Amino acid sequence: MLAFAAALLWQLGVAGIGFGGLARLAPGVLPAGFFAGLVSGATGAGSGLVLVPVFDFLRDMGQIRITFQQGVATAAFAQAFAMACAAFGWVGRLYGPNAPAAAMRIPGNDLISIVFATLAAALPTVLITQSNVQLTDRTLQTAFVIFALALGVTLLIFAWAFRRVEATRQRPERFDLYMFLLIGVAGGYVSAFFGFGIGEFLVVYLIFRKFPVYAAVAASVIVSAATVAAGTAVNWGFGRIVWDLALAAIPGGIAGGVLAHWAATAMGPLWVKTVAAAWIVVSSLAMIIRALA
Rank of each mutant, 00 (worst) to 15 (best):
L2D: 10
F4M: 12
W10H: 14
A15D: 08
G16P: 15
G16S: 11
G20Y: 06
R24F: 02
A32N: 03
F34T: 11
G37S: 11
G46M: 10
L49G: 09
L51I: 13
V54T: 14
V54Q: 09
F55G: 04
L58E: 13
D60H: 14
Q63E: 12
I66C: 00
F68I: 01
Q69S: 13
Q70R: 07
G71W: 05
A76N: 03
Q79C: 06
F88A: 04
V91F: 07
G96W: 10
P97E: 08
P97G: 06
N98C: 09
A102R: 10
P107T: 07
N109M: 10
N109S: 13
L111M: 09
L111C: 01
S113Y: 09
I114Q: 07
F116G: 03
T118A: 03
L123F: 02
T125K: 06
V126K: 14
I128M: 08
S131N: 13
S131Q: 15
N132G: 03
V133C: 10
D137G: 05
R138I: 15
T139W: 02
T142N: 10
A148Y: 06
L149F: 14
G152I: 04
G152P: 01
I157K: 02
I157Y: 10
A159R: 00
W160S: 06
W160V: 04
R163W: 00
R169G: 01
F175T: 15
L177D: 10
L177W: 13
F180M: 11
L181M: 14
Y189Q: 03
F193L: 05
F194P: 12
F196K: 08
G199D: 03
E200S: 04
V204Q: 00
Y205H: 06
F211K: 01
Y214A: 13
Y214D: 07
A219W: 00
S224I: 05
A225Q: 08
T227E: 01
T232R: 04
V234Y: 08
N235Q: 09
I241V: 14
L245I: 12
A249V: 11
A255D: 09
G257V: 13
G257N: 08
H261T: 13
W262Y: 15
W262F: 12
A264M: 08
A264W: 09
A264T: 09
W271V: 09
V272M: 11
A277E: 00
A278G: 03
W279F: 09
I280E: 05
S284Y: 01
I289Q: 12
R290N: 14
R290Q: 13
R290P: 05
A293T: 14
